[in-house]
Design a protein around this nucleic acid. Structure first.
Length: 443
RNA sequence: GCCCUGGUGGUGUAGCCCGGCCUAGCAUCAGCGGCUGUCGCCCGCUGGACGCGGGUUCAAAUCCCGCCCAGGGCGCCA
């Protein structure tokens, strides 16, 4: 056992076949008996057991193996054999063994023992270690498949993927706070939504665009569903008849992901101990006015002509589940005057107090917001004024509507919120590698 | 922005209400020893902690004040 192991011959544990193999990974556990020792080696794909028998390897190596700190990185070359004794059903008989990087001990967080659950704060401080936990990395494997499926979905439907600026001159849409940045001595902001640019591209005749990218919100929310930086799944489509056409896209998109994710990520769902989501086409579309009644009949008093608040949304979700047997539903027709509805939404033709706007509520969580946009210049301008803004501040945006723009609409979905619902998380910070919240900007 | 809760070994907790019985318990972890097959290994021994500063008191992990840090709820939102 003196040779170097050629790492180019390495295979992942899950791909290893019987016969000669090279594996490399972290030492998850070492169990030492008098004349036999076991190393459980973990890589991104799974775990394998290596058996060291005193006598069949040099004593010096045996002693060395016994003293390797947990979580060190090692490589082994040997033979994968079937084993009726090993619970994994197979194990590696080593020929060569190498420590590639020794870990210090103790490890600052405990991440593999389910009896000792490290708090989220400390886990995030040591996120690079936390992510070694298969139940944590599984979330991101699923998320990667989600975004892959989303790209597949949009492309198959003729959407053009775009990348809009993240440094912008003006604060977009509503009053949502923005992060100022110093742009060569001028004030600029981090984009809190690709909204205006998506709409610009409708004016450019792109017809269907989508973007999956970061957005920034400088709001000091202290909740398990808010981040100051998150990934937004945005799309915009032209030539719609109504905002129902937009909801159709959202619904198809969610169903596309939900239908496929379980089949692709079976192992990850097993590790996470949850069932893949079941979302079927035909989600109820319930007006806010109906929702007021639904929650009121369940003892919750809504504020009329306002959006449902957090508790209201939860009661609503429960009502939807009871009455429709659905975990998700569209909430439609929002009060125009509500602060959270921006000036660019199209108002209802016969009832201008209501807007062609929708939210997708999935088990009490607002996952998506969207609607039909007002594309008629004069109306858009007057709505801007009515909402209390100075149209001069939005001149670059209003320009888009002066030279012909198709009727259009679109929506934005929070990738992390979607991930939460798909893999069953109750804190959004579990759904992002390195969360940014009002208290945390590192690591 | 407002409102709660909490900071005890590397990690997670018990103790705090009702100060002394705390030389601070347990689990995990780490170190040593034992066991030809472990697999949430097991058994024995050993190691390690009261966020910081001030106050009250004969006596403070425990009560009071300030600070720092961390969680959570609300508004709001994807």
């Amino acid at each position: 056992m003196a040779g170097r192991i050629d790492l180019r011959r390495r295979v992942r544990v899950a791909d290893a076949r019987y016969g000669e193999v090279v594996l490399a990974g972290f030492v998850q556990d070492i169990r030492v008996l008098k004349n036999i020792a076991f190393i459980v080696l973990r890589d991104i794909s799974g775990v394998a057991q290596i058996v060291f028998k005193r006598g069949s390897i040099p004593d010096e190596l045996f002693e060395k193996v016994c003293s390797i700190p947990r979580e060190s990185v090692v490589a082994v070359q040997g033979f994968m054999v079937e084993s009726s004794i090993a619970k994994l059903g197979r194990e590696v008989i080593p020929v060569e063994f190498e420590v590639l990087s020794e870990a210090s001990s103790p490890i600052p967080i405990e991440f593999l023992d389910s009896s000792v659950e490290t708090s989220i704060g400390r886990r995030l401080d040591y996120r690079f270690l936390d992510l070694r936990n298969p139940a944590v990395s599984a979330i991101f494997k699923v998320q990667s498949v989600i975004t892959g499926l989303l790209h597949e979905f949009f492309r198959s439907r003729g959407f053009i993927e775009v990348h809009t600026p993240k440094i912008v001159a003006e604060a977009t849409e509503s009053g949502a706070s923005v992060f100022p940045v110093d742009y060569f001595g001028r004030r600029a902001y981090l984009a809190q939504s690709p909204q205006f640019y998506k709409q610009m591209l409708m004016a450019s005749g792109f017809e269907k665009v989508y973007e999956i990218g970061p957005v920034f919100r400088a709001e000091p929310h202290h909740t398990p569903r808010h981040l100051c930086e998150y990934t937004s799944i945005d799309f915009e489509v032209s030539y719609i008849e109504s905002y129902h056409d937009v909801m159709d896209v959202v619904e198809d998109m969610i169903v596309y992901v939900a239908d496929r994710i379980g089949g692709i990520c079976g192992r990850e769902f097993d590790i996470l101990g949850v069932k893949p989501p079941r979302i079927v086409k035909g989600l109820p579309r319930i007006t806010v006015r109906e929702a007021y009644k639904m929650v009121e009949s369940r003892g919750y008093k809504p504020t009329y002509m306002e959006d449902l608040d957090t508790r209201g949304e939860r009661v609503f979700s429960k009502a939807v589940e009871e009455e429709y047997g659905c975990k998700a539903a569209f909430l439609i027709e929002f009060p125009w005057r509500s602060e959270s509805r921006p000036f660019y939404v199209m108002r209802k033709r016969d009832e201008p107090d209501w807007a062609y706007s929708f939210d997708l509520i999935w088990m009490g969580l607002e996952v998506t917001t969207g609607g039909q946009r007002e594309h008629r210049y004069d109306l858009l301008r007057s709505q801007c004024i009515e909402k209390g803004y100075n149209p001069d501040n939005f001149s670059f945006y209003l320009e888009f509507f002066k030279y012909g723009v198709p009727p259009h609409g679109g929506s934005g979905t929070g990738l992390e919120r979607l991930t939460m619902r798909i893999v069953g998380l109750d804190n959004i910070r579990e759904a992002v590698l390195l969360p940014r919240d009002p208290e945390r900007v590192k690591p």
